[in-house]
Write a protein that binds this DNA or RNA. Structure first.
Lengths: 119, 119
DNA sequence: TAACTGTATTAACTCAATTAGTACAGTTGC
DNA sequence: GCAACTGTACTAATTGAGTTAATACAGTTA
C-alpha cells in the first residue's frame, strides 16, 4: 500500500505522511474509507507503531483524516483533505512570492514565469 | 552583523547561510566585499568555527561567495549571487507547480492566485 | 468476553548536527 | 624571514531529534 524510500533522509513519519496524503488526494483512498490501523501499518512497513501514530496524529491535526478511539482512522469527509492541502499550498505560494520579491521579482513576473516556462 | 534566532530549530549553519544570503541579495554586502573571516564570525556569534566553515563552503558551492585560501571570502562578482538565487527560486516554483497540479490546479490558475490574492 | 481500535507514557538507542582541538598551506605587512 | 592573519582538513567527543521498545488504559465490536 505504501512504499518508503530509504534513499531519502527525511524523518520516516514525514514520508509516511506524504505517502498517505498522496493516496488521499489522488482518490486512491476515498473519503470515509478506513486507513490501516496504527499497528497494522507498523507491521506492514516494519516501522515502530509510535512513528505511525505520530504521522496519523499530524495528519489529523492538518485535517486530512479523523481518528476515533476504538474504531479506527478514516479519510476526512466533506472535502476536508483537499481543503487542507489547498491551504498548505497557498501558504507555500505566498512564502515563495515573498522570497521572489526580496530579489526584486514581482508577483506578476512570477505569474509570467508560470505561463511561459512550461517544462 | 548577523542575528541568530534560537526559537528556530533548523541547523545553525542553515540560519547562518540564510542570513548571509539575505545580506548579499539586499545589497548590504556589495559584490567583491570581504566577509568576516571564519574565525571572526565564529567568535562574534559564539558558534564553532567548523559550523561557520560549513555555511561558507555551501554558499560557495551555490555561487553566492568565493573563498580564497589565505585571503578571505568575498561576495561573488558579476551578479553571481542573484543568478544563484534566481535558479533556486525557479526550481522551488517549478516544484510547487507540480504539487498544485497534483491537486488539479493548473499553472494558469496559480498565476491567477498570484495576481488576485495580494495579501 | 476476546480481540480489536486509538492514545499515552517512559526509557533506551541512533545518528546527524555541533563542538572541540589540532594541523597545514597560502597571503600579507613588517 | 617571520609573525599574524587567511581558508581548509581531519579526528574525537558531545548533544538532541528521531526512532525504537515495552507497556498500559479506555472505547468499540462481534
Amino acid at each position: 500500500m505504501i512504499q518508503i524510500n530509504y534513499h531519502d533522509s527525511r524523518p520516516i513519519y514525514e514520508k509516511v505522511k506524504d505517502s498517505l496524503r498522496q493516496l488521499i488526494l489522488s482518490g486512491a483512498l476515498p473519503e470515509g474509507d478506513r486507513l490501516p490501523s496504527v499497528r497494522e501499518l507498523a507491521v506492514s512497513l516494519t516501522i515502530n507503531p509510535n512513528t505511525i501514530q505520530r504521522a496519523y496524529r499530524e495528519l489529523e491535526q492538518e485535517g486530512y483524516i479523523v481518528s476515533v478511539p476504538g474504531k479506527g482512522s478514516f479519510v476526512a469527509r466533506g472535502g476536508g483533505a483537499r481543503a487542507a492541502r489547498m491551504a498548505e499550498l497557498k501558504e507555500k505560494l505566498s512564502a515563495l512570492a515573498a522570497e521572489f520579491e526580496a530579489v526584486g521579482v514581482s508577483r506578476a513576473e512570477m505569474a509570467d514565469m508560470l505561463k511561459e516556462e512550461k517544462p
